[in-house]
Computed example of a mutant assay.
Amino acid sequence: MASHIGKLPVAIPAGVEVTIDGQNFSAKGPKGSDSYVIPQGISAAVEGNEIVLTPADDTRPTRAMHGLSRSIIAGMVKGVHEGYAKTLEIIGTGYRAAMKGKGIEFSLGYSHTITVEPPEGIEFELPNPNQVIVKGTDKQAVGQVAANIRKLRAPEPYKGKGIKYADERILRKAGKAGK
């Protein structure tokens, strides 16, 4: 019995070029390019306008890697075609961000400012001083950079001050009961 996720074909959208050379997979699209080494025991082929992955055997490790490989390849194809983005909101009096070259300079209530430079393949966008958008083709890298920025000043539960994801809900605590 093969992986349920791994059995699903990955559609190749128009404008995306896919190359499979043995175990090396690469995708090139309007947003950029990405590559992945498919694990041993799994083969990939382009059939028409879809990528199909097939396992060599039906052992548990191969089944698990079959589904994982399919998910990674689907994410890569989507990334080079549409790209990924994470939006962060900065909440708090005096908390703000400003572009500094390609990086961002944060004022987060510390005695100093913090500058974050984008790694390779990642770019920042600041629609306003209280909103940061992290963009890129690699889903994992976009999520990691956004998590690292959030970690600079994680939201606190009493007033909700700090950096949070746009779709994140902060569970608020009641303060001390006054007399």
Rank of each mutant, 00 (worst) to 15 (best):
Ala141Leu: 14
Asp21His: 00
Lys31Ala: 02
Pro157Trp: 05
Asp57Gly: 11
Val116Phe: 10
Gly41Glu: 04
Ile90Ser: 02
Thr19Asp: 04
Gly109Leu: 07
Ile12Glu: 11
Ser71Met: 11
Ala27Ile: 12
Ile90Cys: 07
Gly29Ser: 05
Val16Cys: 00
His4Leu: 13
Ile149Arg: 05
Asn148Ala: 15
Ala14Phe: 06
Glu105Arg: 14
Ala141Gly: 01
Ala44Leu: 10
Pro55Gly: 02
Arg60Asn: 05
Val18Cys: 04
Val46Arg: 02
Gly160Asp: 11
Thr113Gly: 05
Ala98Gly: 10
Val134Ala: 09
Val16Tyr: 03
Pro118Gln: 11
Asp58Arg: 06
Arg153Gln: 11
Glu117Ser: 15
Ile149Cys: 05
Ala147Cys: 04
His81Phe: 11
Ala174Val: 12
Pro13Cys: 06
Ile170Thr: 13
Ile149Pro: 03
Ser43Glu: 08
Leu53Gly: 00
Gly121His: 08
Val77Ala: 01
Ile90Glu: 01
Glu50Pro: 00
Phe124Glu: 01
Asp57His: 11
Val18Gly: 00
His112Trp: 15
Pro30Thr: 08
Met1Arg: 11
Lys28Ser: 15
Gln140Asp: 13
Tyr110Val: 05
Ala27Leu: 09
Ala97His: 07
Ile149Ser: 05
Val80Asp: 04
Gly48Asn: 11
Glu120Gly: 04
Lys135Trp: 06
Lys164Gln: 11
Ile51Gly: 00
Lys179Ser: 13
Val80Gly: 04
Val132Gly: 02
Val116Glu: 13
Pro157Cys: 03
Phe25Cys: 05
Leu53His: 02
Lys102Cys: 01
Tyr110Arg: 14
Lys164Met: 07
Ile38Gln: 00
Arg169Trp: 03
Ile133Phe: 09
Pro13Met: 09
Gly79His: 02
His81Ile: 02
Gly29Tyr: 12
Val145Cys: 10
Tyr36Phe: 15
Arg70Met: 10
Ala141Cys: 05
Glu120Pro: 03
Ser111Lys: 14
Val134Ser: 07
Glu105Gly: 04
Asp138Arg: 01
Ser33Gly: 09
Arg150Phe: 12
Arg172Leu: 15
Thr93Ile: 10
Tyr84Gly: 02
Ala56Asn: 10
Thr87Met: 08
Tyr110Thr: 12
Gly143Gln: 14
Arg153His: 15
Ala74Asn: 03
Val46Thr: 06
Asn148Leu: 15
Thr115Ala: 11
Ala85Arg: 15
Lys78Pro: 00
Ile163Lys: 07
Leu88Arg: 06
Val134His: 08
Asn49Leu: 04
Ile42Ala: 00
